[in-house]
Nucleic acid binder design. Structure first.
Lengths: 151, 151
DNA sequence: TAAAAACCCATGCCATCCCATATGAACCCG
DNA sequence: CGGGTTCATATGGGATGGCATGGGTTTTTA
């Protein structure tokens, strides 16, 4: 089990804590858990992206190609590192979502964890439903193009 | 945890003191803390660059690539070393920002620490918000080039 | 001697840790 | 096959310690 799959909806308590779904925790540990998960606002969705060491290495990889002390590197670093928060997991498998992240994703009393393979996203359940509906529509369109094939 | 990651906004008190975020202090110590941090005006932004021993070594590395006694080396040395200040950290994890540095970054009563991996920057919160928005746009462009990466 | 810097201490908030409970699923046993 | 039990997970709340922040005091420097 080494990929984030499926979706789970958990409660956010009065302290802003939320349990990470146990299957996701298992993936994080297998991934080389180093004290916390990396979490940042998704660039093109009202949601949060999150992951473990594998995700961190991917971010490093993006910057590795750019020369030190260039304008470009600094700008990219700001977005890639500056927006990232390291959220530590407590003994009960919970994280605390800071206000900045909660407001970006519009999170209130519950949130939905969505597995995306190498990383997962955290959505407000309502917004995720909308998005899922849209995604289904897109699949239908594609099916018409591809012909009456898959179910 | 060996990189500067995430952003923190702290207050500058009446004496010009400001707490370095605890996670950054941890990185500095792991980096081989030698009595103070290196801090200088960013070359291309209204902010301050800062870091520990790793940052100092990187600057040395940049200069090492240039021939001794060349005009280019002299110019770069002045640019990189000339405005560097060593700021000592007091027992409570605070530094004092000298007037010259504060004015370059336009700092008043609060400042934002921005982790950039090997170093971090110190911004006025307002200016940083603008920069962050621009940086996100840039990442969106780049992501198309890199493919689905650190999204 | 005045100003500034370094040092020490006090405080309040927030994050973390620890423990308790409920719910549901898996398992075992009859 | 059915009932009971045990365990893992999710969730809630209290207690503790770290951290940011403010203020006072001593030491250094111009």
């Amino acid at each position: 089990m080494d990929r984030f799959v499926s979706t789970f909806t958990n409660k956010i308590d009065a302290k802003g804590r939320v349990s990470i779904p146990a299957p996701f925790r298992a993936v994080l540990e297998a991934d080389g858990y180093a004290g916390g998960i990396y979490c940042y606002p998704s660039l093109d969705a009202p949601a949060l992206d999150a992951g473990g060491e594998r995700l961190a290495k991917k971010i490093d990889g993006l910057l590795a190609g750019l020369p030190d002390y260039s304008d470009e590197r600094d700008e990219l670093s700001v977005a890639l590192y500056g927006d990232v928060q390291i959220l530590s997991i407590d003994g009960d498998g919970r994280i605390v979502l800071p206000e900045a992240l909660r407001s970006h994703a519009g999170l209130q009393s519950t949130c939905t964890f969505v597995g995306l393979g190498d990383k997962f996203q955290i959505w407000s359940p309502e917004r995720f439903d909308e998005r899922r509906a849209r995604a289904r529509d897109k699949v239908r369109e594609h099916r018409k193009l591809f012909g009456q094939g898959g179910g």
